[in-house]
Design a protein around this nucleic acid. Structure first.
Lengths: 239, 239
DNA sequence: TGTCTTATGGTTTATTTGACTACAAGTATA
DNA sequence: TATACTTGTAGTCAAATAAACCATAAGACA
């Protein structure tokens, strides 16, 4: 392997001292039956065999980090155009037991209806876990998950990203339950409805809920374009 | 150089494909004469000679990223215990012209009174620039700065970090001007005072402003411990 | 028909915000 | 010494928001 950094070493550091390998680890969140869940995979080989961890992978040499994260997710879930956000980079020297590996943490939000675990995965290899039930994970993955969750909690209040966890058409109650679950606070149905509708961010999707044994709720849809228009006019999403 | 990753290559990627070098770049902010400023350094050698950029450096092989950032800053400013926050990692494959280098962006807040540029720096090598006057910087440093600024703007509203930019004792007007400058919004003196004092986050420092040609304002001090206590009781800083 | 459940629309009250007024406490200067 | 000038500090008032709560509507179901 030839020296991959011809512009190095500098005066006081040799190339060997500054090279590392970089991975991506991703928290894939979904919302199912009122619970926020995260997708974990079981490591099949090596030192951490059998333990659960976040899905992740290497960044290729000529690949942008965001692109790598996106590739990884498509490979894993079979879904394209997933909402993805970089959270933080983790680099404790001993975080990975076999060598120095720095990892960039991401989180993704996916609509469970679109999702099917990639062909080839069995339940023993990949599994959804409720947030309140996360086991001990490999390496520093619990820490990465915690940071991602914190980031999600902050972001969901300041940007209309929660919709990425819902089907295209949803009811206001579903939306409220999503917020209730993510933020872990109780809310008043009526106040929630008023507050959200006042933003004029939602479109009536035209239909109603079906298959429920009570009055069916109207279905709404979030329209990114409406949001962009409002934003241009100075609107600031805040929940 | 022997293969630094004995646990690699995996099935489809060779070690050479996943190795990179990692740097840190840091936006050091300060608040001077009512202006938010950032410390830039002039690159002395190599392809970018003469252009300004963010101070930065390599992460050593056995060093935590946060520790590296901290070391870098102490070396640069001569100040210890600087407020430091990781912003984002930048990894476009071509962001650095001579090879693949991924950089972790940080921002720091320092109190200008504590600061003196490290012995050895001359004005032509390091200089404070007002935020509104930033020149074209090397590589993707303008982008890093912009992200850092956005992060700072968000954070300053949700956590009491602005104090890191002020001397230990400050007046309410100074504090307001800090917010005005960072957030770029006008505020009402009286309302600001009421809002801030109501949080009971500030201690009267006992003295008064000196050297001003008008009524001297009381000096206040921010006490981290008071903040922690309030936080434990459920208080949530929000400006 | 009555009961049960959630949807949806209002009301009421307390709290917060924003705009504004007034006076206090100093310095500068005529 | 009086007056103007500047910023500090306190308070008022109306508007906007948020929180708690109530009432009726629409269905499903027995």
């Amino acid at each position: 392997m030839k020296n991959p950094l011809p512009f190095l070493p500098t005066n006081d550091l040799s190339a060997a001292e500054v090279m590392s390998s970089i991975t991506i680890d991703c928290c894939v969140f979904s919302f199912e039956k009122g619970y926020l869940e995260v997708l974990l995979v079981q490591h099949g080989e090596g030192i951490s065999k059998g333990k659960w961890g976040l899905p992740g992978g290497w960044i290729k040499k000529e690949e942008d980090i965001d692109v790598a994260a996106d590739r990884l997710l498509s490979e894993l879930t079979g879904v394209k155009d997933i909402y993805l956000e970089q959270v933080k980079t983790f680099g404790k020297p001993d975080r990975f037991p076999l060598g120095r590996v720095i990892t960039v943490g991401y989180y993704a939000l996916i609509n469970r209806e679109d999702f099917k675990v990639k062909a080839g995965f069995t339940a023993s290899e990949a599994k959804w876990y409720r947030i309140k039930d996360i086991p001990d994970l490999i390496y520093d993955h619990n820490e990465i998950l915690q940071s991602s969750l914190n980031r999600l909690r902050g972001k969901v209040k300041r940007a209309p990203i929660g919709f990425n966890l819902l089907p295209e058409k949803f009811t206001l109650l579903q939306l409220m339950q999503l917020y209730t679950e993510i933020l872990d606070v109780e809310m008043d149905k009526s106040n929630f409805r008023r507050k959200f509708l006042k933003m004029k961010l939602l479109q009536e999707a035209g239909g109603k809920q079906t298959g429920v044994s009570h009055r069916a709720a109207k279905l709404y849809r979030f329209d990114e374009e409406i949001y962009q228009n409002l934003t241009r006019k100075g609107f600031n999403f805040e929940f």
